[in-house]
């Protein structure tokens, strides 16, 4: 049902519109303008695409972005692999009451701030951490192993922080699936693997896609986890943006990077949607 835009509705919309316009649209325009500013040889401010070209000419920026995007895709795939069995178990295997309990159990850790959770992982993994202590006292190792500040622990941390955003859409799409579809496929001669690939996955496809988009974007734009768990060498693209703004104080360059991140990640998602033959409208509804 569509409503006509009446003056009454307008009054209710005003705070939202103001908020959107003042806090989101205006700063974005400001950043866009900033990203297009530069200096000529004489140090005079001019309009230029130099900030954007920098990204393509300086290998390190380009490399950092590709690395970030690749890892974000890996994180998305891993998150799906980890959460799908969980979602399937919660919706299709256990009883209704237990499934509510398990869903809540799954959500509880996410009521705590990401920062605290990442520090939790660091306490477990660091050289003087819990895991090293246990392995030392069991005699499995002679000296502590540094398990933090590498790509594997960073990816693990990212998967952990993204899990919730994958599992919720998966649960809601699997919940809508009638169990008799699985039985019907089984009855018509399908093996377990065929049922999974031909019935369950296609049915859950909209949930998988929307979960993947959210996880991908969150991983790509995450600053905290790569920085804390990946250490100084994590080379995450958000760190490049941070460095431009804070360390180099080159706001123009930072703004350009910000827009490039937005454009390139949108492009990746568009390609992903085309490849999986999903429509954005259907995925979001």
């Amino acid at each position: 049902m569509k409503f006509k835009l009446s003056s009454g509705l307008f009054i209710f919309l005003t705070p939202v519109l103001l908020w959107l316009f003042l806090l989101i649209v205006i700063p974005q325009i400001e950043l866009l303008l900033m990203s297009l500013r530069g200096e000529n040889n004489l140090g005079e401010p001019i309009w230029t695409f130099a900030n954007y070209l920098h990204f393509f000419t300086e290998e390190i920026y380009w490399y950092t972005f590709v690395r970030t995007a690749t890892y974000a895709i890996i994180v998305t795939v891993l998150t799906f692999i980890v959460t799908f069995p969980v979602a399937f178990y919660i919706t299709k295997v256990v009883s209704k009451r237990l499934s509510v309990f398990l869903t809540i159990l799954l959500l509880v850790p996410f009521w705590v701030s990401e920062l605290v959770r990442v520090y939790g992982w660091m306490i477990l993994l660091r050289e003087s951490g819990v895991l090293n202590h246990i392995m030392l006292s069991l005699g499995l190792i002679d000296k502590p192993v540094e398990m933090l500040y590498n790509d594997i622990s960073m990816i693990m941390g990212l998967v952990y922080t993204s899990m919730l955003f994958m599992v919720v859409p998966l649960i809601s799409s699997l919940e809508g699936m009638d169990d008799s579809l699985i039985e019907a496929a089984h009855d018509l001669g399908a093996s377990k693997w065929t049922i999974f690939t031909r019935i369950v996955i296609p049915y859950a496809a909209p949930g998988i896609t929307s979960g993947s988009i959210v996880v991908f974007m969150l991983a790509l734009g995450n600053y905290l986890t790569p920085n804390l768990m990946g250490g100084k060498n994590s080379l995450w693209f958000t760190e490049q943006i941070y460095n431009q703004f804070i360390a180099s104080f080159n706001w123009n360059q930072g703004a350009a990077f910000g827009f490039l991140l937005l454009l390139l990640s949108s492009l990746i998602i568009w390609v992903g949607l085309k490849m999986s033959k999903q429509q954005l409208g259907r995925v979001l509804s």
Binding site: D178, S180, L181, E183, A184, H186, D187, L188, G189, A190, S191
Partner: peptide, 14 residues
């Protein structure tokens, strides 16, 4: 079920 020579028409059709 997938190896029996019987097929089932489900109540909700599925």
């Amino acid at each position: 079920p997938n190896r029996r020579p019987v097929n089932l028409v489900f109540q909700n059709l599925a």
